[in-house]
Design a protein around this nucleic acid. Structure first.
Lengths: 210, 210
DNA sequence: GTCTATATCTCGATAGAC
DNA sequence: GTCTATCGAGATATAGAC
């Protein structure tokens, strides 16, 4: 799917407006202004606010999530997969801070559109990232590298501990201002922090712990 | 702070409306209907939608977050603190599924109100949950129970891995329908899952892992 | 405190010229 | 495709009776 320059401008303005103000709080006038065009033109392209919103969800899934998913196909074992997943995921979120805000609002609303798009994406890609994850996880268990845990529980934990920081960092800066002042550094440190906790938290434990 | 019966009814209707539809998507008419009163009465009590919204944020902080915080004061070491934190937190979220939706929308908007209330709460409580956390975490390090990690990073990871599931479970049900069909069971299992991963992920590692 | 009725206004959407 | 001008729905908020 290829978009015209004007469409791209509308998408990025709309993504920002929806992320910051929510679907209902966003104003078509603001979206048009930020895109440098007239409000009527936004309607000309997308007919209604609802359709524009749906188009933005699709845009986000196709542009960001599919890429993320594809980038993980080549990993060969669980340890590598986990490290790449965390690194790539955090890089994408750090570069596109509007993404998690936008998506979490859709999810809080029950994810009516996002769910459909993700279902389609999972079905369409021959081997989606999720299947790759399950495969490597099971291999890890078989080879004694990972404890026999519920892979769904683990998947949620991995994703959540990556994303949540980008949603809530303004809150956490209340306890540690360093988080905002040296955001890039803290974000980078987050990669190894998460890998260490998760990878070693998943490893089998010879019964030496109290 | 004590509220009248009518105020309580308005709060719970408003919390639901704001959580499901967002601040701008929520309708004063719906809030009044669900509370079983007239729309004008909502304005009589709270003057405007904006003020009602602020009051709901305050209500949530006072009613839910402060309690959660207080319940952790009595724990005596890091291991116990971590286990109680995860258990209590997940219990509260499971019982009040609107809370995370409501709060995450406020946070996505930059948390203008929530931040202020939390600052006040942290200042006011003699020993807040957060201070208790830092104390136990440092003790854990001193006693060789925990690796010398950044406590802020760890705090974010703990909170995020608890909350995120409650925000995103409708999405994860796409890969494992069991999550929705046996929600209570999955939620309960989540407690030990998280404790195991986090506690053992934080432990020192005698260099026997590959 | 609680209601009905109404004022006011914002915003999504369209008509129609260019 | 792009603009100006405008309509009309629907929402917040208030006035005023009880």
């Amino acid at each position: 799917m290829q978009y015209t320059e004007t469409e791209e401008k509308i998408f990025s303005s709309a993504l920002e407006a929806f992320a910051v103000h929510g679907k209902d709080g966003a104003r078509m006038q603001d979206i048009a202004n930020k895109a440098g065009i007239n409000k009527a033109l936004v309607h000309y392209y997308f007919r209604s606010k609802e359709r524009l919103y749906e188009a933005v969800v699709t845009y986000v899934v196709e542009r960001y999530i599919r890429n993320l998913s594809d980038s993980l196909q080549s990993e060969t074992n669980f340890k590598q997969f986990l490290r790449s997943f965390i690194t790539n995921y955090i890089d994408v979120l750090a570069l596109n801070p509007l993404l998690p805000k936008f998506l979490i609002r859709e999810i809080a609303a029950g994810a009516p559109i996002f769910k459909k798009k993700m279902e389609a994406m999972i079905r369409s890609s021959k081997g989606s990232m999720i299947q790759t994850y399950y495969k490597h996880f099971q291999e890890g268990i078989d080879q004694g590298e990972v404890r026999p845990l519920d892979p769904s529980q683990t998947f949620i934990t991995i994703i959540g501990s990556c994303i949540f920081f980008f949603l809530a960092h303004p809150m956490f800066a209340l306890l540690n201002p360093h988080i905002e002042k040296r955001f890039a550094k803290f974000t980078d440190e987050r990669k190894s922090h998460l890998f260490d906790i998760l990878y070693y938290g998943l490893q089998p434990r010879p019964e030496l712990q109290k």
